[in-house]
Amino acid sequence: MKIAVLSGKGGTGKTLVSVNLAAITKNSTYIDCDVEEPNGHLFFKPQNIQLEDISIKIPTVDEKLCTGCRKCVEFCKFNALAYIKDKVVVFDEVCHSCGGCVLFCPQKAMSEREKKIGSIEKGNSENVTVVTGILKPGEASGVPIIKQLIKEVENKEGFTFIDSPPGSACVVMESIKDADYCILVAEPTLFGVHNLQMVHELVKLFKKPYGVVLNKCLNEENLAEKFCIENDISIIGRIPFDHQLGMLNSNGMISVRENDKYRDMFSDILQKVTKEVQREATINP
């Protein structure tokens, strides 16, 4: 079962939720898809790390063979190629590695070269396999790394928790594509509601079953909760704005491994998620 945890902005509690859920589940996998600044490993401190480089393919031109027909420039719908002073210029960061220019070149002047854009680290932390995607600073898109991360767990048994990047852009879509369930983490503020709305629209578009975890709950009006009630969205958990939890978290500790109170809280969320996924499987097999 693959469960993606997402939110409309950073700092809402995606990592808190996904790390703790993975930590209470037997033989689970945690994948950090927030490749621009992965931080789940700070909590798990995984051992026996295996490193894998991730590269993309970028076209390169043999100027001796190029006749300047511009078939490649015309073909590229991302406009990653230009033809200036009798030379094809490649814009690496605009290229989507589709390989079309190489196929279309009548002179066979184009070929592909590998360009390293990041890496994947795999390790263990007690019961959890921890997989972290890391995008090289300065690279434009983490999508190829997330694709590889998702591929790693394609046929994995048991629970996989996907810690998505913040927002609702391409990288988030890539990270939830294969998910059986989406957990949306929301803050109680007006800003929190706006961000919840964004990811809510996204999971509806992807026709994913989903539920909301309200984080940083205080004993006062909760606008995110109000939004959920008004829109008939199921609330699967409430995490209090709690000093002790904050302390554990800021010290890089996993709360469910430290305190039964939090173990019970996250077990309850996991139970609700499991139930909803099973119910979904019965209604829409």
Partner: peptide, 18 residues
């Protein structure tokens, strides 16, 4: 021709100028 490009509009527009 780049006015409605999905991406890389600046590159394509500059190509027109070149």
């Amino acid at each position: 021709s780049a006015v409605a490009s999905q991406g890389g509009a600046g590159i394509k527009a500059a190509q027109t100028i070149v």
